[in-house]
Amino acid sequence: MKVEGSRQLAAPREVVYRCLMDPLSLAQALPGCEKLDPQPDGSYQATLKIGIASIKGTYQGRVQILDALPPESFRMKIEGKGAGGFLKGEGTISLTVQNGGTLISYSGEVQIGGMIASVGQRMMQAAAQQMVQQFFDAFSHQLPAVQPDAVNSGGLPPST
C-alpha cells in the first residue's frame, strides 16, 4: 500500500527538521503513541494504540531514521506487531523551503498482515491518510509561532 502526500508548515525548514527528530514532540504528535524510547542505536522503541476498522489493538514496534540529510530529508523505517497483525513500512520524507515556510513531502510503502489485513484492508488507505493528517495537525501545534489553518495545503483538507 502506498502512502504519499505533502503538507505545508509555517516554520523554517531547520526548525521543522529539528522537531521531527525530537522524540518528545514526535511522541506527542503520533496518533495513539504511548511510548517512544530512543535506543542506543539511534532507533526508537514505540508502543502505539491504534484502531483500524473494527480492529483496535496495541502494537509494539521500532522506528528507525536512516540516511539523514539535515535539514533536507531522511528515510523512516517502521516495524510493528500486535495481536491484530503486523505492519512494515518504509518511506522518504523531504523538506523544501516554500512560501516562507516548509513543505514536507512524504512517500512510502506500507505492508500489513494478519487480522488488520483481512478485516481492515478496505479501510487501510483511508485510515493511513487520516493518521498522517492527525500527525501533522498535532505536529504543527508543536512548532513555535504557527497558525496552522492559514497554511494548510498539499491536497489534504484542512482540519477543523
Binding site: 505492508q111 500489513i112 489485513a117 483481512s118 484492508q121 478496505r122
Partner: peptide, 14 residues
C-alpha cells in the same frame, strides 16, 4: 490474496 500472501477477502464484508 495479495502479492504478499495476505488474504484480502478475509471477512464477509469483502
Amino acid at each position: 490474496y495479495d502479492e504478499n500472501g495476505q488474504l484480502l477477502t478475509g471477512t464477509l464484508m469483502d
